[in-house]
Amino acid sequence: MESVLTQLPALLGVLVGTIGTMVATTVTERARWRRSQNVRWDERRLDAYADFTRAVKEIHLVSLGMLSGHRPGSRTPTLDREDGLARLAEADVRHTLTWEAVLLLGDATTVRAASTWRRAVRNLEQAARSLPTPPDNLAAMVGQADEARDDFYQAARDGLGVGGGTVEQFRRPVEGRIPTARH
C-alpha cells in the first residue's frame, strides 16, 4: 500500500497531463474549425456580394443607357427602348436570384445597404421604363443610386474585414458644391 502512495503523485501528474492535453487539443480543434468556417462563409459572402453587384450594376447601366438622351452631358451611349426593356427583363432575373444569396449570407448592415442601393436603382429602372417622359429629378435619382452603391461597397468591405482606402466613386456634397458622379 505504501508503494501505491509513493507513486500517487506521479499517477496524478500523468492524469492531469492527459486531461490537460485533451482539453488543449479540443480547444485548438474547435478554434481551427471556427476559423475554417469563417473563411468558408466569407468566401461565399464575397461571391454573393459580387454577383449581386454585377446584377444591380447591369440594371443601373441599362437604365442609364435608356435615359441617356434625357441627361445633359451624359457619356453613356443611348440604348433603344425595346432593346433596353429586353435587357432589363433578363437582368431582373439575375438580380432576383442574387438578392436571395445576399439576404441569406449578408450581415444586417450590408443587407440594409444593399436594399437601399437596390431601391435607388429600381427608381432609375422605373424612370427608364416610363419613357418617353423622364422624371424631373433624374440627376438626383442618379446621385442617390451612386451614393447608395458606395454605401453598399463600404458595408460589404466592413463586413468582410477588407481594409484599404475609400471606395467612394460618388463625390458627396462639400460646402454647397454640387456632387458629380464618376462612372
Rank of each mutant, 00 (worst) to 15 (best):
E2A: 11
V4P: 03
T6K: 11
T6W: 03
L8G: 08
A10G: 06
L12T: 03
G13M: 11
V14Q: 05
L15P: 00
V16S: 08
T18E: 03
T28Y: 14
W33P: 00
Q37I: 14
N38L: 07
L46H: 13
Y49G: 08
F52V: 11
T53P: 01
T53A: 13
R54S: 07
A55L: 03
A55P: 10
K57G: 03
E58T: 14
I59Y: 02
I59A: 14
H60P: 01
L61K: 11
V62Q: 09
S63D: 05
G65E: 04
M66R: 14
G69E: 12
H70R: 09
P77V: 12
L79Y: 06
L79R: 12
R81L: 09
R81G: 03
D83R: 13
D83S: 10
L85T: 08
L85P: 05
L85D: 09
R87E: 13
L88R: 10
L88E: 06
A89K: 14
E90S: 13
E90A: 14
E90F: 10
V93I: 15
R94S: 11
R94D: 09
R94M: 11
H95N: 12
T96W: 02
L97A: 14
T98I: 04
T98W: 01
W99P: 06
W99N: 12
E100C: 01
A101N: 11
L105F: 12
L105Y: 13
D107G: 13
T109H: 08
V111Q: 09
T116K: 10
W117Q: 15
R119W: 01
A120I: 05
R122P: 00
N123A: 13
Q126L: 10
Q126A: 10
A127P: 01
A127K: 12
A128L: 05
R129D: 05
L131E: 07
N137I: 02
L138V: 09
L138C: 06
L138S: 08
A139T: 14
A140H: 09
M141V: 09
G143M: 06
Q144I: 04
A145W: 05
R149C: 04
D150F: 00
D150L: 02
D150R: 04
D151K: 11
A156F: 00
R157F: 00
R157S: 13
D158W: 04
D158Y: 02
G161I: 08
G165S: 07
T166V: 06
E168S: 11
G176N: 08
R177G: 08
P179E: 04
P179H: 07
A181L: 07
